[in-house]
Amino acid sequence: MNRKLTNWALGVGTPFLLVAAWWMFSENSTNTFFPPLGMILERFQALWLFEHFESDVMLSLRNLVVGYALATVIGVGLGFVTALMPVARWALDPLIHFLRGIPPVALVPIFISLIGFGIEMRLVSITLAAMFPTLIATVDGIRSVDSTLKDVSSVYRLTRAEKLAQVYLPAAGPQIASGMQVSLQVAFVVMIASEMLGSSQGIGAMTLLAQQSFMTSDMWAGILLLGVIGFGANLVFEVIKNKVLAWYVGSKRLARS
């Protein structure tokens, strides 16, 4: 119990100390590129709360959420197909590993020439890039399902749908979840990268613009917001994961004790 408390204190205290140190050491800074934290927070409030909240923050977040949701659904779906159908596995495996090796950011200009530079381009970029970690984790997860489980589900004569939904999916769940967590980070990176071209709306576009116009306080405010959103997204993910995979977390704890 005591140990848990210390860990919590560390988790909360370290960022707090860092921010305090940042504040103190930047307070009298005259360096244009490293303005005082107080000034950055002022700009943060002026920009994001709430002048550009609707027009830029919500826009970016919507792209992130929709793109990520699509990536997860397609990734898990394709993962099942690839893992369970030998033909598909042989046909798709090399392609998947070829495509996932390409840095997603490099594909943005190609998407622009194919589908223009609207929201569609941003969504496709996010979806495609974020799909691979989930897809690969799903394939691995299903392949490593315990053979006893497979045997038992055959003995019980489960239908194909029952097998998929009630045996394979839960068994591969923990691995799929780790893949989805990586996908979330990728989606976040590509969300920002996709805003560098096309209409200059969104958090990434605004931050880039601030950087190129030497409005460093605005740039730092954007970076801060991106950090907060990334942190928040991960937190939400962890909470949902722990809920959905409660049985797994519980069984692991049981195994440890």
């Binding site: 210390t6 560390l10 205290g13 140190a21 930047s26 360096n31 490293f34």
Partner: peptide
């Protein structure tokens, strides 16, 4: 041991930030 770690972390943070502060 943990106390030392906290101090070390704080020191690292302070050093990193001061390096950013007045880059000569």
């Amino acid at each position: 041991g943990k106390k030392n770690l906290t101090v070390a972390l704080a020191t690292v943070a302070v050093l990193a930030l001061s390096a950013c502060g007045g880059s000569d």
